[in-house]
Simulated scan of single mutants.
Amino acid sequence: MWAVNLAAARQFHAREGHLRVPRKHIEQVETEAGLVCRQAGVGGPVGVKLGTWLDNVRRRAAKLPERRRAELDQLGMRW
């Protein structure tokens, strides 16, 4: 799931230029054929509750592995 959520964050950032996502925002992401997602099965579009996910990630920032934190830092994540 991290990969799908991160893809949604990257897509939003590429389009909007920031990660100040409203809490109720849902980002539509096209998943790759090799990526299995609970919502979409294998491949196909999926709605990611990006605002909720980012809020949850912020709350758990101290427990995030350094690699994941760095991935979000590259997008200008405000902690």
Rank of each mutant, 00 (worst) to 15 (best):
M1E: 08
M1R: 07
M1C: 04
W2C: 00
W2E: 04
V4T: 12
L6K: 01
A7V: 00
A7I: 00
A9N: 05
A9P: 08
A9M: 05
A9Y: 07
R10C: 08
R10L: 02
Q11I: 01
F12P: 02
F12H: 09
F12Y: 15
H13N: 10
H13T: 01
H13A: 15
A14F: 03
R15Y: 08
R15A: 13
R15L: 11
G17Q: 06
G17V: 06
H18G: 02
L19P: 00
L19C: 01
R20P: 03
R20C: 12
R20K: 15
V21C: 03
V21A: 02
V21T: 08
P22H: 04
R23N: 06
R23Y: 08
K24Y: 08
H25W: 15
H25V: 01
H25Q: 06
I26V: 15
I26F: 14
Q28N: 11
V29L: 00
V29E: 00
V29H: 00
E30I: 05
E30A: 10
T31C: 02
T31Q: 02
E32S: 14
E32I: 05
A33P: 08
A33Q: 10
G34Q: 06
G34N: 10
L35W: 10
L35R: 06
L35T: 13
L35N: 03
V36T: 09
C37F: 09
C37D: 13
R38Y: 13
R38Q: 13
R38A: 15
R38M: 10
Q39C: 11
Q39W: 13
G41E: 05
G41F: 09
V42G: 01
G44E: 03
G44Q: 04
P45Q: 11
P45D: 02
V46L: 04
V46Q: 03
V46Y: 08
G47H: 11
G47D: 13
L50R: 02
L50D: 00
G51E: 01
G51P: 04
G51N: 05
T52W: 14
T52R: 15
T52K: 13
W53Y: 15
W53K: 07
L54A: 01
D55W: 11
D55R: 12
D55M: 11
N56K: 15
N56V: 06
V57G: 02
R58A: 14
R58D: 02
R58G: 12
R59F: 09
R60G: 12
R60K: 14
A62T: 13
K63V: 13
K63S: 15
L64I: 03
E66Q: 13
R67K: 11
R67Y: 09
R67V: 09
R68I: 00
R68P: 00
R69K: 10
R69I: 01
A70Y: 08
A70M: 10
E71K: 07
L72H: 02
D73E: 15
Q74H: 10
Q74R: 15
L75Q: 00
M77F: 14
M77I: 12
R78T: 06
W79T: 00
W79V: 05
W79E: 01
